[in-house]
Design a protein around this nucleic acid. Structure first.
Length: 453
RNA sequence: GGCCCUAUCGUCUAUCGGUUAGGACACAAGCUUUUCAAGCUUGGAAGCAGGGUUCGACUCCCUGUAGGGUCACCA
C-alpha cells in the first residue's frame, strides 16, 4: 500500500447554546473514525458570531465532552474569533485575484430586515458551475452552484462569514475528513467553490443522518426543549457509557445482534460506510433500557456510591437512618429493581414512594383488609402474624408466615401484612419490608394495624 | 416553492436478487411468594404505490407519493 495520509477530523461546535445531543453523536462518529485510523481530532470553536457566542456555552461543551469521556485534541483548540488576521490575508488575496469583490450592502433592497445594515460586504465571484462531490455515506451528489449567486463571504475584511472561515481553518489545520450532520449537505458546494478559489484540497465528506425527535423533525432546542442538551441527560442520571453506546447505535449498527458495546469494541467495529442514510428518531425508551443495563453492570462499590450520592439529595438525605450502611444497602437493592437512571432515586423519593421506611405509615382501616373487606378476619390473621414475630430468626418467620398464607389464602395474609408495614397499596413484598424495617419495628406496625382495625 | 437527501414491524435496524423477511426496544398475555417493579416464557407487529429489468425482486432502474433537510451580512 502507498503511504496513507494521516487522518485528521475536526469537531467545530459553535458556542451559541448548550452542547447538543445530536452534536455529541456527530462528534462520537468523528471520534470513532479517527481513533480506528489512528488519526487526529482537532477542536475549533466557531465563535465568529459575536452576538450569540458565549463563554459559558463553550465551557458547557468542553465539560460535557470530558464527562462523556470522548475528547478531541484540546491542545489544538482554535477560536475563530482570534484568527481574523489569517482570514484577512485570504480575503485580500481573493480580492486581488478578483475572485471576490467589495459590494454595496444587500441587493434585495426590498428586504427590510437588512435595510439597517451599513457599509460594504465581500462577495464571492461565483464561477457558476456544476459541482459533484462524493459522500462516503451517500455516494455522488451533484449541485448546480448558479443558484448560489455571488454569495457573501465576509462582512468586512475583519469579519468573515462561516463558510469562508470553515474552509480556511479546515485547510490550515490539515483536515482531510469532514464528518458532519447532513444538514450540512447544501453548504458543501459553496465551500468547495471557496476551496478551489484558495487552492485548498477537497476533504473527503461524510454526511451523517440527523437525529430526529419523535415528530420526525430535527431535534431542536426551540421545538423540543431542554432534552436536546447533553447536560439534561447528565442531570437525569444517565451514565456516559450508556449514552455513547446508545448514540453510536442510532443511525449505525454493526450488522450483528449484539446491542451492548464498550468504546474499545466500538472503535474496532465502527464502519462509517455502514452508517444509515435516513434520519433516526431518538428513542428514549431504548436509552433507558440500555442505561439500566449499564447500571446493573456497575460494581457493587460503584452502585453503592452512586446511590448514596443520589440519596443524599433527597428529602430523607440527612436522616439518621441513612448513616446505617446495612440499611442503605438494602434500600439500594430495592431501587435497583426499579430504576433506569440514577435521577429516579430522587424523583421516587420526592414522590413519597418510600416514606414508610423513615416514618410510621398512616393506615386506613378498610385498606388493611384484603379486597377492602373482612375486618374480623384481617384482625385475627394479623394477630396470628404478630405472634409469629416472636421468632427471632428471619428465615423462620418467613417460613411460618408462608405456612399461614398457604392455609388462609395468600391475599388474606400477605396483603394486610404488607399494608400494615407500608401503608401503601403498592410497595415491595412484605418479606422484603420485614427485612428492611427490622423485627422490632415490624411488631410495632402490626400492633398499630390491629388497633386500627 | 427551488435545490438536495431519504423510504423494511410503533421505534432502532439485519438482509449486499432466491430467507417461514432476523434481532433489539416498546407493546400484549401467561408465569413467578398478594400489590408495584424487576425477571422468565410466549405472542402480535414491516418491505409506500405503480411501472419496468430478471427464471426470480425488499434488494437494481424509472415515475409517482410521502417525509425530512436547506435556501442569512447564523453557524
Amino acid at each position: 500500500m502507498e503511504n496513507k495520509e494521516k487522518v485528521v477530523v475536526r469537531f467545530p461546535p459553535s458556542p451559541t447554546g448548550l452542547f447538543h445531543i445530536g452534536n455529541a453523536r456527530t462528534f462520537l462518529f468523528n471520534y470513532l473514525f479517527a481513533k480506528q485510523n489512528d488519526g487526529q481530532i482537532v477542536f475549533r470553536l466557531e465563535d465568529t458570531d459575536k452576538e450569540r457566542s458565549k463563554k459559558e456555552y463553550a465551557n458547557d461543551i468542553i465539560e460535557n465532552l470530558k464527562w462523556l469521556g470522548i475528547e478531541p485534541d484540546f491542545a489544538t483548540t482554535v477560536k475563530q474569533s482570534e484568527r481574523s488576521e489569517i482570514y484577512k490575508k485570504y480575503l485580500e488575496k481573493l480580492i486581488s485575484e478578483d475572485k471576490a469583490y467589495l459590494a454595496e450592502e444587500r441587493k434585495d433592497e426590498n428586504d427590510e430586515a437588512y435595510s439597517t445594515s451599513s457599509g460594504q460586504v465581500i462577495r464571492f465571484r461565483n464561477p457558476n458551475k456544476k459541482i459533484v462531490f462524493n459522500d462516503l455515506i451517500r455516494g455522488d451528489i451533484e449541485f448546480d452552484t448558479t443558484e448560489l449567486k455571488d454569495f457573501v463571504i465576509a462582512k468586512s475584511l475583519e469579519e468573515p462569514v462561516y463558510h469562508l472561515a470553515v474552509v480556511i481553518d479546515d485547510f490550515e489545520m490539515g483536515v482531510n475528513y469532514v464528518i458532519r450532520g447532513d444538514d450540512g449537505i447544501s453548504n458543501t458546494p459553496r465551500q468547495i467553490l471557496i476551496q478551489e478559489a484558495i487552492g485548498a484540497p477537497r476533504p473527503i465528506y461524510a454526511h451523517l443522518p440527523l437525529i430526529l425527535a419523535p415528530d420526525k423533525t430535527k431535534l431542536s432546542k426551540r421545538k423540543h426543549g431542554e432534552q436536546v442538551s447533553v447536560s439534561y441527560y447528565r442531570e437525569k442520571g444517565y451514565l456516559p457509557e450508556a449514552i455513547k453506546n446508545f448514540l453510536a447505535m442510532v443511525g449505525w449498527n454493526p450488522g450483528i445482534d449484539q446491542e451492548i458495546f464498550s468504546m474499545t469494541e466500538l472503535i474496532k467495529i465502527f464502519d462509517i460506510k455502514k452508517v444509515q442514510k435516513k434520519g433516526a428518531i431518538f428513542n428514549v425508551e431504548k436509552l433507558d433500557w440500555l442505561n439500566r443495563e449499564y447500571i446493573l453492570h456497575l460494581s457493587d462499590k460503584e452502585k453503592f456510591e452512586n446511590f448514596n450520592s443520589e440519596f443524599s439529595k433527597t428529602k430523607w438525605g440527612g436522616s439518621e437512618k441513612t448513616k446505617d450502611e446495612v440499611f442503605m444497602q438494602k434500600l439500594l437493592k430495592l431501587f435497583l429493581d426499579k430504576i433506569h437512571r440514577w435521577g429516579e432515586v430522587k424523583e421516587l423519593v420526592e414522590m413519597g414512594e418510600y416514606d414508610y421506611f423513615f416514618e410510621k405509615p398512616v393506615l386506613e382501616t378498610n385498606k388493611i383488609c384484603w379486597k377492602g373487606e373482612g375486618k374480623e378476619k384481617a384482625k385475627s390473621i394479623t394477630e396470628e402474624v404478630l405472634s409469629i414475630m416472636d421468632e427471632k430468626d428471619y428465615e423462620k418467620i418467613k417460613e411460618e408466615i408462608w405456612k399461614l398464607a398457604e392455609k388462609e389464602g395468600k391475599g388474606e395474609v400477605l396483603w394486610p401484612l404488607r399494608y400494615a408495614l407500608s401503608g401503601r397499596e403498592k410497595s415491595p413484598d412484605p418479606f422484603t419490608l420485614i427485612e428492611i424495617l427490622g423485627i422490632p419495628e415490624v411488631i410495632n406496625r402490626i400492633k398499630n394495624a390491629i388497633q386500627t382495625l
